[in-house]
Amino acid sequence: MNKPKSVFESRLAARHRQGRLFGAVCMASTWFGIGVLVVLLAGVTWQAAGWLNWSFLTNFDSRHPEQAGILAGLWGSLWLILFTTLFSVPVGVGAALYLEEYESNGWLQRLIQVNLSNLAGVPSIVYGILGLTVFVRMFGVFGSQPKVVALSLGFTDLEIPLPFGRTVIAAALTLTLLILPVVIVAAQEALRAVPSSIRTASYALGATKWQTIRHQVLPAAAPGILTGVILAVSRAIGETAPLVMIGALTYVAFTPGDISSPTDIITNPAGLAEAPFDTFTALPIQIFNWVSRPKTEYQHVAAAGILVLLTVLLVLNGVAIALRHRYQKRIRW
């Protein structure tokens, strides 16, 4: 009786040491990631110091590192944010509504659900190839000369080239396909969080399915959907590979539609109609381009560009978090 007990006790100290060591290793692993994040941010800031200034934000790219700026990329990315959101929200929310509210248990729903999780795993560069073939070249069915379809908008003509070519619209459509699985899944989660008693109550009052969705379910799910959309769009904005594929230009000395400041929207309204069908560059493309240049000064330019990109992402994420926070407080079931 005595012997096994003493063995147990002498082992106990060793076992506790082993446990503490293991805990320490696990903790160190956790902080490793955060450590890298800190080093990365600090390093980029250090490299960008002195290079990120007002003229960097208002200049176009240049062969002289000191004069290189990010204006074209900034506007390109803003247009991409706008159109990607415009395209992905209705389609993504529509798909989620269909899957959650209309076809919640059919074989089609299961098929689409499996398909969504597989799509989310497809490398972004493959989406780039899809976008290149479908949107930029349109399978080559229009031959080598683009045809232009003109639509009158009243104050100006909307000139749509077919195929789209290397334009903002082609890129936004590609990014839309890329983030659609994420948007759909986020919207589905938000819809699922709406208690079913709301739906039952609405039906019992004689509402049709769409009235119930439109007046009760969507408003209740809106904050969740919006948060998901912003997070997905912020992912799209950092994406470089698909944009490289569809041929976003690397050296650009203009902004889409020649709109390079908010006042231009008033003075040059025709530019609004031109912008979607203009060639463009984007923040990550400019960064990639600068990183690839041999002159070491461009390292600093790239770092400054990275800070601008990270700031845009931070703003988007901040908005998402604020939204989530605000509406969580407001509605308690």
Partner: peptide, 24 residues
Amino acid sequence: FVKPSLEILAGVPTVVYGYFALVF
């Protein structure tokens, strides 16, 4: 604290990681 920080790490664009690899 840790989980959101790791989310930020996951949200850093890949082009930034490329820069980090090359320059640091």
